[in-house]
């Protein structure tokens, strides 16, 4: 068997998200959706594009990822892509978004302050149903359609990438604007809600789901896909994150699983390189091999289940930094997404 090389990306595919302007990245907790969203933004920025990366959960995950101080409610350049590309980041704060919205659309700066004093802003952003989510998606929509005459195509950003709520909540999060449209039968709120829904349900949006090849995340990915489809949101890619390459050749996996690897051959091999092949060591190593084989087998089963979703899928390796994924790691993931054709 040749020694396993560096992580190998699956074969290149034509990039299917060429026309997408809003990339919504969701995933079960712990799957690394923030990391994938950031890598996707870097990948999209290469070739001189300008990309806005937004986070909506108020936990400053992007600042931590890019090792920057907490992001204010302001679009800030956070990284450069190849060929003069730029990634800007924004942590959307619902309260600031509401005040901005009032000022922008109603010229009501003073009213905003009055609302704040009354506790209405707090009510709108924390207690009132869905309004918070409406503000978050509304802001993303604003960034997608913002104009900038000085740029090619006249748009401020070529793409917007959203680090969205987890898979279990994503359909509800996206749909809440439709609910508000249902609540407000007339008026400006309804108009705004309808234009946001039009974007979210169009081919200009793609909802990507990040998963691991483990039971619960793939189950959630399947449930999430079904939910998104039933509410007519465009499901984009499945991104399988934190992959660890198989370390046993296929022929040995089944034997390792059933505990019938050649103990004598292992002992001889160890002896050859001067490792004392004590029986306890041999047993422990064979157990580790069996564990590994079980994991690979499960991963394969999960991968097959994900293939049934009939969405393009991309795989990213586990980065093993102790601190956090560093910028170098993010560029590496971005390259892998490009190499696999998620971004062209």
């Amino acid at each position: 068997m040749p020694p396993p090389g560096p992580y190998e990306a699956p074969a290149r595919r034509r990039h299917p998200f060429r026309d997408v302007r809003l990339h919504v990245v969701s995933g079960k907790g712990g799957t690394g959706k923030t990391t994938v969203a950031a890598a996707l933004a870097l990948a999209l920025a290469s070739g001189g594009h300008k990309v806005l990366l937004v986070e909506v959960e108020g936990r400053q995950g992007l600042a931590q990822l890019f090792d920057s101080p907490p992001l204010p409610y302001e679009e800030r350049k956070i990284a450069s892509g190849a060929g003069g590309g730029e990634v800007f980041a924004l942590a959307i704060d619902p309260e600031a978004a509401l005040l901005e919205y009032l000022e922008l659309f109603y010229n009501m700066k003073r009213a905003g302050r009055a609302l704040k004093r009354l506790g209405a802003v707090d009510f709108a952003t924390t207690i009132a149903p869905g309004l918070r989510d409406v503000l978050l998606t509304g802001k993303a929509k604003e960034a997608v359609s913002r104009e900038d005459k000085s740029r090619r195509l006249g748009l401020a950003y070529d793409c917007v990438v959203m680090d969205a709520p987890p898979t279990g909540r994503i359909a509800r999060f996206l749909n809440v604007t439709a609910e508000v449209a249902g609540l407000a039968k007339v008026g400006p709120v309804r108009g705004q809600a309808e234009s946001v829904m039009a974007l979210l349900r169009s081919p200009r949006t793609a909802v990507h789901l990040v998963t691991l090849l483990e039971e619960m995340p793939t189950q959630e990915t399947r449930d999430g896909t079904r939910e998104l489809r039933s509410q007519v949101f465009p499901v984009g890619a499945i991104v399988i994150n934190k992959m660890r390459p198989p370390l046993l050749p296929k022929s040995e996996l089944a034997r390792a699983r059933s505990g019938s690897l050649d103990r004598g051959e292992l002992a001889a091999g160890l002896k050859e390189v001067g490792i004392d092949a004590e029986p306890e060591l041999l047993t422990a190593l064979l157990e580790e091999a069996a564990d590994h084989a079980r994991r690979v087998e499960l991963e394969n089963a999960e991968r097959r289940a994900l293939a049934d979703l009939r969405r393009p899928s991309y795989e990213l390796p586990l980065l093993t930094d102790v601190d956090r994924v560093d910028l170098g790691g993010l560029y590496r993931l971005a390259d892998l997404l490009r190499a696999q054709g998620m971004v062209g």
Partner: peptide, 9 residues
């Protein structure tokens, strides 16, 4: 000893 090499990795 490919098996031993794989198990060691």
């Amino acid at each position: 000893f490919p098996l031993a090499a794989a198990v060691l990795r």
